[in-house]
Simulated assay, not measured.
Amino acid sequence: MKQIVEQGLLYDFYGELLTEHQKKIYEAAVYEDMSLTEIADENGISKQGVHDLIKRCTNTLQGYEDRLHMIKRFEAIKLRAEEINALADEEDLPCAVLRDKLKAISGNIIEELT
């Protein structure tokens, strides 16, 4: 399950960098949960060819993430947004403390983006 989520994230961020053929096969495997045999039959290629293409695409997408870190940055910013939401729910927090915490979080977001 974790692998499917990771593959989905990689595809969401970097999928447009694949060829149309690669995207079609990868989407069938990851999003449509088709078997290698089903994909092979539908596309007129061997089951081994499908397996190799999916593995090659995953490695390519992971290589983009290793160099660009877009998913890592996205997850860090998402965590900071969750911190802001949690602060908004705190009713007894003095304004000065809230302001300092928000400045710290926004500073972390800005740092992550630069």
Rank of each mutant, 00 (worst) to 15 (best):
I77L: 12
I77R: 03
E75G: 02
D89W: 05
N85Y: 09
A88H: 13
H69V: 06
E75R: 05
C95W: 09
E83S: 07
L93G: 06
R67W: 10
A86F: 11
D89H: 07
A88Q: 15
A88I: 14
I77V: 15
A96L: 06
R73H: 08
A86Q: 15
L98D: 09
E83Y: 08
R67T: 14
L79R: 12
K72Y: 10
E82G: 05
C95V: 10
D66C: 08
D100W: 00
E82Y: 06
D100H: 05
F74K: 09
E75P: 02
R80H: 13
K72R: 12
R80E: 15
K78M: 15
E91D: 12
A76E: 11
P94T: 07
V97H: 01
A86G: 02
E83M: 09
A86R: 14
D66H: 13
I71P: 02
V97I: 07
L98I: 02
N85G: 08
R73Q: 11
I71N: 00
L68Y: 06
E82M: 07
E91I: 11
C95L: 11
K72N: 08
A96N: 04
C95A: 11
C95K: 09
M70G: 03
A86T: 14
R99N: 00
L93C: 06
L93M: 13
N85M: 10
A96K: 10
